[in-house]
Amino acid sequence: HEITLHINGRRVKLRFRDEKAAEILKEAAKKGLDEEELKKLAEELWR
C-alpha cells in the first residue's frame, strides 16, 4: 500500500504494509515529523 502525505507543502509518498502502519504514519505527520523521519519510520514499520 502507499499513502501520500502533505508535509511542509510537499507531497511525500510512503509505503506501508497495513492499516495500523498507515495510522502510525498519519499520527507522526500530525506531530510534526519531517520527511526524513517519516521515511525512516515507514521503513521500520515495513519490517
Rank of each mutant, 00 (worst) to 15 (best):
A22F: 10
K30T: 10
D34R: 09
L38M: 12
G32K: 04
L5K: 00
E19S: 12
R47L: 14
L33P: 02
K40R: 13
H1P: 05
A22V: 09
E27W: 08
E27N: 10
I7S: 05
D18Y: 06
R10A: 07
T4A: 05
R11I: 15
L33T: 08
N8W: 02
R15V: 06
D18G: 10
H6C: 15
K20R: 13
I3C: 03
E37V: 08
H1Y: 14
F16Y: 15
L25W: 06
H6F: 14
I3S: 01
K30W: 07
K39F: 11
E27A: 13
D34V: 09
A21Q: 07
H6W: 15
E23Y: 09
I7F: 05
N8T: 03
W46C: 02
E44P: 00
H1L: 11
A22H: 05
V12A: 01
R15H: 07
L38R: 00
L25E: 00
L14N: 00
V12E: 01
E43Q: 08
E2N: 07
K30D: 11
E2R: 06
N8H: 06
V12K: 01
K13V: 15
F16Q: 01
K31Y: 10
R47G: 13
R47Y: 14
D34P: 12
L33W: 14
G9P: 00
A42D: 01
T4H: 08
E35R: 06
G32Y: 04
W46F: 06
L5A: 02
D18C: 05
H6G: 03
F16P: 02
R17S: 06
R15Q: 08
K39A: 07
V12D: 00
A42W: 05
D34H: 11
R17C: 12
E36K: 13
D18N: 11
H6R: 11
K40I: 12
K26A: 06
L5W: 01
E43P: 00
A28Q: 07
T4Y: 09
I7N: 02
K30A: 13
R10M: 09
E2S: 12
I3E: 02
D34T: 14
K30V: 11
E19A: 14
L33D: 05
L45A: 02
R10Y: 07
T4Q: 04
L45C: 02
W46D: 03
A22P: 05
E37Q: 15
G32D: 04
L45W: 03
A28N: 06
R15C: 05
